Amino acid sequence: MKRAIFPGTFDPFTIGHYSVVKRALTFMDEIIIGIGVNDKKKTWFPTEKRVEMIRKLYADEPRIKVEAYDNLTVDFAREREAGFIIRGIRTVHDFEYEETIADINRKLAGVETILLFTEPELTSISSTIVRELLQYGKDVSDFLPEGMEVE
């Protein structure tokens, strides 16, 4: 079985994230969306709410699991017996950062990282921008997967 971790803060989970998961499901048997708990990051939604929103989104997809974790991503992958980490890439800067982390994860645990480039029409969408729009009371529905509600 090919199992992958798709890690992130997902605050909130955007259509860009959704696209990466959809595309990764074409070659993975199971994907665990891992919501990293990072006390240094200021989040809009509590961890439990993010887990709940994403689980609801994938309620009819048995190959998707959603869990929070508070350790290194590579350790979380090993604990879940995942041989792969899926990451979305929007920019050259993302690529350089992810390449370094992928090398370290492979050396530490033999876990391979698969980088999926964001679809061109989605490159400008980020959780950071969506959070800022939410902060100012703007409608963000165009940036979220269909059916995902943020309150």
Rank of each mutant, 00 (worst) to 15 (best):
I129Q: 13
Y136N: 09
R106M: 06
Y18E: 07
D11R: 00
I35A: 13
A59H: 12
S19H: 08
E121F: 07
S126C: 02
R80C: 12
T14D: 05
F6H: 06
T14V: 08
I101C: 02
T43H: 13
D11M: 02
F6M: 08
A102R: 01
G147M: 04
L133P: 02
L116K: 03
P12E: 05
I85Y: 08
A24N: 07
V150E: 05
F13H: 04
D70R: 14
E48K: 12
S126Y: 00
I114M: 10
G16D: 07
K41R: 10
T26W: 09
A82L: 12
R50S: 05
E121G: 01
F84K: 02
I89G: 01
F13A: 00
Y136Q: 11
G16K: 02
V51P: 05
E149F: 01
L134M: 05
A4D: 00
P120Q: 08
T43D: 13
N71F: 11
E48P: 04
I54C: 11
A59Y: 10
I114H: 00
P7T: 09
G137Y: 04
K22M: 09
V140D: 00
L72F: 11
W44C: 11
V37K: 15
D75N: 15
N38C: 11
H17I: 01
V74W: 01
P62H: 13
I114G: 00
D39T: 14
E98Y: 06
E30F: 11
T43V: 14
E151A: 06
V20G: 03
G83I: 02
P120T: 02
V37Y: 14
A24W: 03
A59C: 06
V150Q: 04
I31E: 15
K138I: 09
D11A: 03
L25K: 12
E132K: 10
G83A: 03
K138E: 15
L25C: 12
I129L: 15
V37W: 07
A82N: 07
E112T: 06
D29R: 11
K2N: 14
Q135H: 10
F95P: 00
I101G: 03
S126A: 06
M28D: 14
D139G: 07
L116S: 00
T123Y: 06
W44K: 12
K42S: 15
I15M: 06
L72M: 14
Y69H: 12
H93A: 10
D60W: 09
L144A: 04
D11Q: 01
S127C: 04
